[in-house]
Write a protein that binds this DNA or RNA. Structure first.
Length: 898
RNA sequence: GCGGAAGUGGCGGAAUUGGUAGACGCGCUGGACUAAGGAUCCAGUGGGAGUAACAUCCCGUGGGGGUUCGACUCCCCCCUUCCGCACCA
């Protein structure tokens, strides 16, 4: 028996102070305290084991190993000032269980953690307080790290990385140079999402409903000089390689939608020179329905389309100009949602339909997007609802070219036979498509084409707190010159002001001595790039750096990469389903092409942990200040307000407003500061210990599912740990561990069944049912007076990944050498799973009429004999003819009677 | 509107190559131990009928049809909820 462990586990310490603060009666307090401390008290041993793992390097990973490798990764956090929330804990616990489990199963496990520490919040805090983002970041990282350690996660902290560390972003810059060398990075003057409040541009993905994803500020379109990455060049591979990875379907589907590949044709329409005063021009459109070409009755150019300037006639110029200006002022939001009526203006020009020579009017309308396809369309109102709406509004002809619908009522977008289409008449849609494409190609006026929703990645931000671009702009000839590799990292200079210049340039532009430099090739005067990279950059490749964090020759050693990649399991929030995962896949493929890595895809398996919801307490306030309870729900003249959870006044089971006589309504919703329904992991750890928090989050339900937090639920798992604790440690418990206790067959069978189920469930990430199985087993132990150590030790070993501190403590208490984290996973014996007999369900006409015990190897005849000896069964068979007997050994016996 | 996922006790959830629905936990009810219990232990807990009690029977996995000896599980139609995309030609 390890005495040091015992000593920590028993009386002593300063726990009284906490209870003092709770202002309980003195006598009550003493009794409770005394009793509590001889019981299960995680605070007494959790920190001890955390130090033990640290000191012994229990979870250090050997990069070079002969054992099979397993790489399990969390989406590393942005270290915000708010600290860790229960959603982090959910994902991190899941991976921690897997890491510890795989280690016990003989794998060399890589399970690292780091910080995605560039980003807006630290910079905005700097704007407000003048604190350097580096300081804010360091402080927040400290808090996060302490929180993670307090939860006992088995990270190899020697591999900790931070994206803001120059030794790290040196390689982010290096990868950028690879992109540049491969012609995948370029500068363009593009209309961007400019957010005046944040003083920066945002990527399309960072704009939601016309507002910034972070902070909800207004976003407008503005043309600016920007860095772009040619992710579109990889669109096909990003789409096709989804087939070779094991991701949840919804996630793949979101990526497919985002890439948005569609097959169709590009068709050239000549502008009729007569309508434009002799100007010759060509309008190229993309369409997925070339079969409807004969039904095109007008064309539309996006307002931004450059041809608008050329073809608009003098008579229409004023109107077109006004329309374009209005469209430019509108945000994307206004161009879509707020607009029922489709607006547009006629340019005065006509185009010629190549199939029949017909002249059709060319309009400008903002329902056509400049960024998709060619920015121009042929409009077929008979067979496209959007065009139909527009044609109706502007009195344009609607022509039927596919039969089967009623185009007077709505556009017919489905299948049918071609009509009014010359040589296509009579064909179904599919065949017509093939035939018209062939015809277009023969005539040289069109070809088969593929279009994508995916656009090139807007890769620069006008911020200070990001990776500087490793390039200079030579003044002489405006050439963009990359820095040579040996000059990396290009570090961020110190600045006085974090304020963006307001014109769109970053604060870096104000640091003369940094900006003014010379060209590394010619020595001529040059300016540094003052944009910085977006936050996604650092997270695009961090999983590689964990494999080889101290390498100063390369981002990652090629052989080590080969040994560890791809990541076997990657767990994180669904909010990164598109952006981060798509960008990281893109960079990985570029690195693959550049020979830096050996794998085509970085993440073999991805799992999104479900959101944890909180309960808030709502009431409703009318315009004149009257407060209503749930009777206000759904009324349009009221505003929903929330009472902070801590301020709810409980009248028994009823939540009441603290000041008014109003009954509150519990609402289960996403946790947010403003709702006052955020559960702080630190509080739970303090009250119940880290193991109970871990266990509860895993017991709540399936990992991927959205689940409501039940504050009483933690109690249940805490009770379970406490029960197991008492079996081992409490002499007054109704059951104790005793060397001489009988390890009977029944108990042994229970144990082996438990091992089988926990093993299988853990492997499949079904932690909730694994925990349930362990609970059942512990309940079974409780039915006895005493149990032998060999009946308890395996369950302690299986508990270790889930509740590691408690498991370590019990393992030592059972007289074993530390640490249980170094022990192999228990095995089970197939032969010990089954009894000699089993309970067979007997049905008559499919209804359960009784159960009987039959021998394991009973055949149908034997089973029927036993079943018919059962009164209840026999009663239902009485006087009826047995027409058929269905016997599935081990499962069911069913009599079909006449 | 389109796409994806899902509807099971008072609550979170178990159980699907079709085979005893409701494991495990919360909550609740009763009892034990107590000066006390928000500790612990024991028992019970889907709904209904029935019995002195035990039996026993009927209904039941969002709704309606179907396949089958047998359906939470498979097929068709409908309803609801959540998530994502949203004028992508």
């Amino acid at each position: 028996m390890d005495e040091s462990v015992l000593a920590v586990g028993s009386h002593g310490g300063d726990d009284c102070s906490r209870l003092d603060q709770e202002a309980r009666g003195v006598r009550y307090q003493e009794t409770i305290t005394g009793e509590f401390m001889s019981k299960f008290d995680p605070a007494k041993f959790e920190p001890k084991w955390q130090s033990y793992w640290d000191e012994h390097g229990t979870f250090r990973t050997e990069s070079e190993t002969d054992r099979p490798t397993y790489y399990v990764l969390d989406m590393f956090p942005y270290p915000s000032g708010a600290g860790l929330h229960v959603g982090h804990v959910e994902g991190y616990t899941a991976t921690d269980i897997v890491a510890r489990f795989k280690k016990a199963r003989g794998f060399e496990v890589l399970h690292p953690m780091g910080w995605d520490a560039f980003g807006l919040p630290a910079e905005q805090y700097a704007l407000k307080t003048g604190t350097h983002p580096r300081e804010t970041t360091e402080k927040n990282v400290g808090v996060f790290k302490e929180q993670l350690k307090s939860l006992g996660f088995a990270y190899d902290w020697e591999r900790e990385i931070n994206t803001t560390d120059p030794d790290y972003y040196r390689w982010t810059q290096w990868i950028f140079l690879k992109l540049w060398e491969r012609d995948l990075a370029y500068i363009a003057e593009v209309p961007v999402n400019w957010c005046p409040a944040l003083g920066t541009v945002l990527a399309n993905e960072e704009v939601i409903d016309g507002r910034s994803e972070r902070g909800g500020h207004r976003v407008v379109r503005k043309p600016m000089r920007q860095w772009m990455l040619k992710i579109t060049e990889y669109a096909d591979r990003l789409l096709d390689d989804l087939e070779i990875i094991d991701w949840p379907e919804h996630l793949k589907e979101m990526q497919r939608n985002w890439i948005g590949r569609s097959r169709g044709a590009e068709v050239d329409f000549a502008v009729d020179p007569e309508s434009t005063g002799g100007l010759e021009a060509n309008i190229r459109v993309f369409t997925t329905r070339p079969d409807t070409l004969f039904g095109a009755t007008y064309m539309v150019l996006a307002p931004e389309h450059p041809l608008v300037d050329e073809i608009t006639t003098d008579g229409q110029w004023e109107k077109v100009k006004a329309y374009r200006e209005e469209a430019a002022r509108k945000s994307d939001l206004e161009r879509t949602d707020l607009q029922d009526e489709k607006t547009g203006v006629f340019t005065g020009a006509y185009a010629v339909n190549p199939t029949n020579g017909e002249k059709i009017p060319v309009w400008v309308a903002d329902y056509v997007l400049y960024g998709y396809g060619t920015g121009a369309i042929m409009a077929v109102p008979g067979h496209d609802q959007r065009d139909w709406d527009f044609a109706k509004a502007h009195g344009i002809e609607i022509r039927e070219v596919i039969s089967g619908g009623d185009i007077a009522e709505e556009a017919h977008e489905g299948d049918g036979k071609l009509v009014n289409s010359d040589f296509l008449n009579g064909l179904p849609v599919d065949e017509a498509k093939g035939k018209i494409i062939a015809w277009l190609e023969d005539e040289g006026v069109g070809k088969e084409a593929i279009s994508y929703k995916l656009r090139d990645w807007l890769f620069s931000r006008q911020r200070y707190w990001g990776e500087p671009f490793p390039v200079v702009h030579r003044k002489e000839d405006a050439a963009v010159v990359p820095l040579p590799e040996e000059q990396l990292p290009l570090t961020l200079p110190e600045v006085e002001e974090y304020e963006p210049s307001g014109t769109g340039e970053s604060p870096l532009a104000t640091i003369e001595e940094w900006v003014e430099t010379t060209c590394p090739q010619t020595g001529e005067p040059a300016r540094r790039e003052t944009n910085t990279m977006p936050q996604w950059a650092g997270s695009c490749w961090y999983y590689l750096r964990f494999i080889d964090p101290d390498n100063d020759e390369a981002p990652v050693d090629f052989d080590l990469e080969k040994n560890w990649m791809p990541v076997d399991l990657y767990v994180g929030g669904a909010e990164h389903a598109v952006l981060h995962l798509l960008y990281a896949r893109f960079w990985h493929k570029v690195l693959y092409d550049a020979g830096v890595v050996s794998t085509k895809e970085p993440f073999k398996r991805v799992v999104n942990q479900g959101m944890i919801l909180g309960t808030s307490y709502a009431y409703y306030e009318t315009e004149n200040g009257e407060l209503l309870g749930n009777e206000g729900e759904g009324r349009s003249d009221v505003t929903q307000k929330t009472v902070h959870v801590d301020n709810v006044h409980w009248e028994g089971e009823t939540p009441m407003h603290p000041d008014e006589d109003v009954e509150l309504e519990p609402v289960v919703e996403k946790m947010s500061k403003s709702r006052g329904n955020v559960v702080n992991p630190d509080d739970v750890v303090e009250e119940y210990g880290a193991d109970s928090l871990r266990l509860y989050e895993m017991f709540m339900g399936p990992l991927e599912q959205t689940k409501p937090w039940d504050p009483r639920g933690v109690n249940g798992v805490h009770r379970f740990l406490s029960r197991l604790w008492r079996v081992v440690c409490d002499e007054e418990a109704p059951v104790g561990v005793d060397e001489s206790a009988d390890f009977d067959e029944e108990l042994e069978r229970e144990l082996h069944r438990t091992i089988a189920q926990v093993t299988e469930n853990t492997e499949e990430l079904r932690f909730n049912t694994a925990i349930a199985a362990m609970m059942e087993y512990v309940n079974a132990l409780y039915k006895r007076d005493s149990v032998p150590p060999q009946a308890v030790e395996p369950v302690v070993q299986m508990l270790a990944p889930y509740a590691p501190h408690t498991a370590e403590e019990l393992w030592a208490e059972l007289g074993n050498e530390p640490s249980v984290s170094e022990e192999p996973w228990p095995t089970f014996d197939e032969d010990k799973l089954e009894e000699d007999t089993y309970e067979l369900a007997v049905q008559v006409m499919g209804k359960l009429r009784g159960t009987v015990d039959v021998a394991q190897d009973a055949d149908e005849e034997a089973a029927v004999a036993v079943a018919r000896a059962n009164e209840d069964v026999e009663r239902h068979l009485e006087g009826r003819e047995i027409r058929r007997v269905i016997f599935v050994p081990g499962r069911i016996l069913n009599f079909v009677v006449g």
